[in-house]
């Protein structure tokens, strides 16, 4: 009963959510990639993506979203942790200390000259962990509320 009521009032929110989510996710990915030599990084990028996904949960109901994004967020935490720690371990295999970082400049097709670092996969791991854990926390409470 309560859910139906919320649904019928949601037209504005749903339309704006579609636009907003696109902008927020784009910006969050920019933050993730810029985070090496500029303000940004995996943590705030992840939080921003999580907030975008949360708007989605607010605007549409739970079932639609779980169908649209069939990701188990706890699995995402595990994968993110493995990715982050894996970056450090790879450098260990070459005989350098844990988490030593390397970077080089590459010429990429569309983007032109770009700096690629080993900090990026680490940040990506952090990003996954943050998105996964933020959504797990909030959805756990939200699902309990029914």
């Amino acid at each position: 009963m309560r859910q139906k009521q919320i649904k019928s009032n949601d037209v504005m929110l749903q339309i704006f959510a579609r636009i907003l989510i696109l902008i927020i996710i784009t910006f969050s990915i920019y933050l993730l990639l810029a985070g090496h030599n500029n303000p940004g990084g995996g943590f705030i990028g992840g939080l921003m993506t999580a907030s975008a996904l949360l708007i989605m949960y607010l605007a549409f109901d739970m079932k639609t979203i779980t169908k649209a994004i069939p990701i188990n967020f706890t699995t995402m935490i595990g994968a993110g942790l493995l990715l982050a720690v894996g970056t450090g371990i790879v450098t260990m295999l070459f005989g350098y200390p844990f988490l030593t970082q390397f970077f080089d400049y590459f010429h990429l097709p569309i983007l032109g000259e770009a700096e690629l670092t080993t900090a990026l996969p680490f940040d990506l791991g952090v990003y996954f962990v943050v998105v996964g854990s933020a959504l797990t926390i909030i959805l756990t409470i939200a699902e309990d509320d029914k």
Partner: peptide, 14 residues
């Protein structure tokens, strides 16, 4: 690191 990796793997194996 070792418990870190194992902990992450165990999340995937719940």
């Amino acid at each position: 690191i070792f418990p870190f990796v194992i902990g992450a793997v165990l999340i995937l194996l719940t």
